[in-house]
Every structure is written in structure tokens, then in C-alpha cells.
Design a protein around this nucleic acid. Structure first.
Lengths: 219, 219
DNA sequence: AATTTTATGTTAACATTGTTAACATTTAAA
DNA sequence: TTTAAATGTTAACAATGTTAACATAAAATT
């Protein structure tokens, strides 16, 4: 417990913790080595004993960030206890809420700036990290059970994802004053999705009242 | 024509030209003052006689960028010579192609990094620069004429735009290998739009064969 | 237990960045 | 012709990521 003056004990973990705390409030582009050294009471070059470069720390953040993101989304899509339509709704809602609650992390994960790093450590399409494969699997499940229109599932996954990504970006990059109506917006977006990718409006016993209203519009 | 050695003549315009040339090939984040001074054969601080800061140059780029962008999109939506459905299709196609052909400019205009600058010079919602108001007007036109479902036109505009923005971002931020199918993707996305925002599939004499196929599916 | 090696820290220096101050020269105005 | 304004240069700043040379604590080896 008692830390000696010179060796810190667990600097690497602490650097990461401080970095994640930082991007809760500010963009990664403002995360400097000085911020990290000041917060740990070390020198500006101490980080080089734990990461080969600043980018290596960013890389670790991206890796852990996708872990967190994937864990928030994928289980919702895989939960066989719930109706498919409910899973779609909840995962879409969670996606957008994740972006809104962690805008700087979301941009770090899906933005262009660190794309070169991201692409060396993960494959968004194939792995669990992004929820992409889980979404695609859910779509295919729906197609098999006849709820969803039979079409290219990869393309459909991309289009759903691009809607989520687009709305998330609009919300967090703040070039429109739409935060006050964000709930309405993604409910409406979700309704659009159902309209487009369901073969026909099947009677689904959804556990979410809102969904039933959408599928069986009140007369 | 003959330029003296000391005074350059038209440095301000030349700086802007070089900057725009630069982002045809590289991201704004790599556009340094050294790049600009080297390209003009001036010193690194010469730019300060024409712009109060680097951000002021970026600001000018954003302003001109939106001018270019708006000029590419708005006229397509306003062209009363064409059917509404064709205008939607062409403007959506043009939007995505603009992003793909000018990815660095697109990110400069719509990204977060320079949002603070953008928001001091333009209002995306109210002006012509982004095509937003033209899109909203077109939607309202469609609602009046009965082609489009009557609903909150602002929200519908946001949702259409978020789809365009989302797909554009996915295409240009390159975290998926989907460039090879980008035409299919936005055709499909456009079909989705029609499915969702048309009240019913009305017989529209579109001048684009593809559109007619979508609206009157081949039996 | 003593010595050596490894891990982990520091300080000092680099080049690159945007920026400013002090100075120089050319053009325009008085 | 003289003065003022516009537009250029050079030299220096602090902040950035990074590296080299050095220092110290902990672990491994003898």
C-alpha cells in the first residue's frame, strides 16, 4: 500500500484510467502527455517506460473502448429471452445513448483520426467489438423466421448501422440543436427501420408498449 | 504579371488555393503553416499579414467549402423542371458523391474538430450552405402535393440527412470495405427512404428509369 | 549476503508546431 | 518628396511528442 517515492507501482494502469477519465470530459486531441504526467505526479517522459509512444496508449484505449462498446450492444442483440423486435429497439437505443454519454470515446472509436490504429487491432466487421456481427446475425435470424424481408443481410446491416452512426454523429457533433428531441428522433428512426425491413407487419407480442403501437398502429 | 521579389502580389488567394489543393489529397490536420509557406516560397509567418491566425484561414475554408457544397446540392432540390422524386434521388446521390470525392473537405465541414469555428460563421439549419433548408422545403412541397406523408418536416429532414451523413461517413472514414458496393448501398438507402416517407406508392412519372422500377416494382 | 541485471523513473535536449515582436522593404498617400 | 501603410523577413516563445543519458529501486544471480 505504501508507495515509495521513486517507483510508482502501477503507472501503466493509472495512465489508462486518467486517460479514460479525461475523455469523459474532453476530446482525445487535448489529451497530452503533460496531462498524464501531471495527474500522476511523474515526468513527461515517464509514459515511455510503459508505452512505446502516445499512439500506443491511444491504441490501448481504442481496444478497451471497443470492448466496452461491444459489451453494451452485443448482449442486447443476442438475448434469446426477448423478442427480436425488442432486441432491435433496445440495442439501437443503447447505441445512440452510448454515443451521447461518451461522445469523445465514440469519436475515438469510429472517427477517422485514429482509423489507422484501429484497423491494426480490430476488425469491425468480423468481431464482437462493434456489435456489427451481432446485428447481422440478428437480421439473419429475423429473415429465417420470416419477420424480416429476405435480402442481402450485409447490406442491410450496413444501412441500419449507417443510420445509427449518422444520427449519433449529428447528436454529438453538435451542428444542430436537436438534443431536445433526440428521443423522438430515434423512435421515429426505428419506426422507419421496421417499415423498411419487415416483410409485412406481423403480429408481434412485444414487451415494449411503444413497439406494439408502432407495429399495430392505434386506430 | 512580373512579380517583384519582395511583395508577392496575391498571397491571400494563393494561400487559400494551396490549402484547398492540399485537402484534396490529405487531411486538414496535416495542413501546417510550413506547407503553406513552402508552397508560396515565403516565410512561415507571412500568413499573419493576411489571416489573424491559422484558424482564420480554416474559417475561410469552411465558408467557401459550404458555398461549394450548397451550390452542388441546393439547386438539384429546387429544380422545378424535375419531378420531386427525381430531385430527391439526384441530390442524395450528389451528396454522397461529394463526400466521396472530397472526403477531407467533407470532414472539415461536418466534423467536430472545427465545429466552434463553423458555428460562428454559418447556421446549417437556416441557410443555403448545407442544403438543409432546401431539403426541408422539398419535403414540405411533397407533403403539400400529397406525395409525402404528412409529418413533422423538420424531424423528417434530420432523419434523411442523418442517413446521408451516416452512409457518407462510413464510406469515407474507411472502417469498412464497402466502397465497392457504394452505388448499391445508396440506391437501397434511397428505396428505403421512399418506402418510409411516401404515404403510399403513387404513380410518379420519373425521368430516371431506376426510380420507376422502385416505385412500380417489376412484376 | 553481495553483486549484477532489469525495470522504472528523471533531466536535458530535439525538431515541429502556432504565434509574436522587432525589423525591412515596397507601395500608396499626403 | 516625404510620410504612412501594407506586406514581407528573421529571431524568439511556449507547447508538443520524442529520445538519449543518467539515476534509483527491485529482482535475479552468484
Amino acid at each position: 500500500m505504501i508507495k515509495n517515492e521513486y517507483h510508482h507501482g502501477n503507472l501503466k494502469e493509472e495512465f489508462l484510467k486518467i486517460a479514460f477519465d479525461f475523455i469523459l470530459k474532453d476530446d482525445v486531441e487535448n489529451l497530452t502527455l503533460k496531462v498524464l504526467s501531471d495527474a500522476t505526479g511523474t515526468s513527461r517522459s515517464a509514459i515511455y517506460r510503459h508505452f512505446v509512444s502516445k499512439d500506443a496508449l491511444i491504441e490501448m484505449m481504442i481496444f478497451k473502448g471497443f470492448e466496452e462498446f461491444g459489451n453494451a450492444i452485443s448482449p442486447l442483440l443476442k438475448n434469446q429471452q426477448k423478442l427480436l423486435v425488442d432486441r432491435f429497439y433496445l440495442s439501437a437505443k443503447t447505441y445512440i445513448e452510448f454515443a451521447m454519454q461518451n461522445p469523445n470515446l465514440y469519436r475515438l472509436l469510429f472517427g477517422k483520426k485514429y482509423a489507422h490504429i484501429r484497423d491494426t487491432i480490430i476488425n469491425i466487421q468480423d468481431e464482437e467489438c462493434s456489435g456489427f456481427s451481432a446485428l447481422k446475425a440478428a437480421i439473419e435470424e429475423g429473415q429465417r423466421s420470416g419477420i424480416l424481408k429476405k435480402e442481402d443481410s450485409f447490406q442491410r446491416t450496413i444501412l441500419i448501422w449507417s443510420s445509427l452512426h449518422g444520427l449519433s454523429s449529428l447528436l454529438i457533433d453538435g451542428f444542430m440543436d436537436i438534443n431536445n428531441i433526440h428521443t423522438e428522433l430515434y423512435d421515429k428512426m426505428f419506426q422507419d427501420m421496421l417499415d423498411t425491413f419487415t416483410a409485412k407487419k406481423i403480429k408481434l407480442l412485444s414487451s415494449i408498449p411503444f413497439i406494439n403501437d408502432m407495429i399495430h398502429p392505434a386506430k
